[in-house]
């Protein structure tokens, strides 16, 4: 077991972070903490992808000193996926933050349960 974790340290850390982020997003009542949870969750997937894409002793896939053999370079696709994922999570975060500002201006609270209650009472 211990040797498994030593070999897959980053993957194990990514899974733990994913669980932390998912629980925060799902169970926390504060909107800002939910957004932080979502970002932790997404970032853990990037850690997972990046750790899979890295091979010890190889370099980034940029042609150097005329070495064309694929054996010298790492696969660039996981890094590309991470970049795409970052763009996606930034835009979702922006939308959520804008929504949170709106909610706070209207209800003066960040607690989602209270907001839902107030919405039912207020405009019903």
């Amino acid at each position: 077991m211990a040797s498994f974790f030593r070999g897959h340290l980053y993957e194990a850390a990514a899974m733990i972070l994913f669980a932390v982020g998912l629980t925060t997003l799902l169970l926390h009542r504060n909107m800002i903490k939910k957004i932080i949870g979502m970002n932790i969750m997404d970032t853990s997937v990037y850690l997972f992808l990046a750790s899979m894409g890295y091979i010890r002793g190889r370099s980034a896939p940029i042609l150097e000193d005329g070495v064309v053999s694929a054996e010298h370079y790492v696969n660039p696709i996981p890094a590309g996926l991470v970049l795409t994922g970052i763009v996606v999570s930034v835009s979702v975060t922006a939308l959520l933050l804008a929504l949170t500002v709106r909610l706070y201006k209207r209800y003066h609270t960040l607690d989602i349960d209270q907001i839902v209650l107030l919405a039912r009472k207020g405009d019903g």
Binding site: L26, M38, D42, L96, I115, V116, G124
Partner: peptide, 19 residues
Amino acid sequence: GHCLAGCARYLVMNLVGSG
């Protein structure tokens, strides 16, 4: 107000799904 609160719940659940 209903739409704001509905959207917050929608986004939270949907982001769990996309994660």
